[in-house]
Write a protein that binds this DNA or RNA. Structure first.
Lengths: 146, 146
DNA sequence: TTCCTTGCAAACGATTTGCATTGGA
DNA sequence: TCCAATGCAAATCGTTTGCAAGGAA
């Protein structure tokens, strides 16, 4: 398990939450950072192998979430899918395939992202609600299922 | 249980799926149409009372979903929340409170909705993905939690 | 009569937790 | 040494299903 620049940032973040950046947690982060979209505990477990029991995987995800390293998404069928938080992975959106359920990342060109951001601000000013994040997901058919 | 125009449309839709628009299903629809946002089975059960067992509630939701009368959302914490489909309720978006978890409907002024729609089209043309729906959610703090 | 629907209880799958053990600073 | 982290098994929670009884066409 090599330590990247990303890893050292995460280590700092974890230690500020009295948590260690252990082998198991590094493994989860590495696996997540290598996948092109949010992944569920089951999917991670399948990819990592049974070296790490599911319960430990869930516990790792819980700690990483509390420390703001990963973020859960609940797009379909009631399973939580995790991905690295925006400060690690950058802001992006998701493509959700209605057929196979696959979730992939989508980074918008800056100009589009700017439009979305403007829209969020304008909308926020019209309702009694303080926007913090926005989620903009496209549901449709991926290239394979189209 | 009064029958509204909405109800007769739903009845037609259900019967085309060999399903009846029974008292229980009417109750679910009525409750959903009265709430200002997507509701989970548990929330519906709490509101309806134990007249309808949870299992029946789930079954009603399943039938209504198959017939396209209700649509599930999985915004937070892994519980499915249902709402009337767009052809019954109109297109809209959601405000999700990060603090209390409440989900409320948000109808955008036509001009904004137009912008969102344009954006979806433009984006769709840049990726190998066929957009069918879009979900645009604002996460933030509701007036009570702000 | 024929099927769809419902209720109850049992089954399920995803996730969490208690407890004893291991491991890192 | 001391407390966090882990593994295992049992528990929990939301949701689903088998089966027998009830209800509408």
């Amino acid at each position: 398990m090599t330590t990247t620049g990303l890893d050292s940032e995460i280590e700092t973040r974890l230690s500020s939450h009295d948590a260690r950046y252990t082998r198991g947690r590094r493994l989860v982060v590495a696996t997540l950072s290598g996948s092109g979209g949010p992944r569920s505990a089951g999917e991670l477990h399948a990819q990592i192998g049974s070296t790490m029991p599911l319960s430990s995987l869930y516990r790792s995800l819980a700690v990483l979430e509390e420390s703001g390293v990963v973020v859960p998404h609940f797009t379909k069928s009631g399973v939580a899918r995790y991905e690295l938080a925006e400060w690690l992975q950058g802001h992006h959106h998701h493509l959700v395939c209605l057929d196979c359920g696959k979730v992939e990342d989508l980074s918008l060109p800056h100009s589009y992202e700017e439009k979305v951001r403007e829209l969020v601000e304008e909308i926020g000013s019209t309702v009694s609600f303080t926007p913090v994040n926005h989620a903009f997901e496209l549901e449709g058919l991926c290239s394979r299922c189209a």
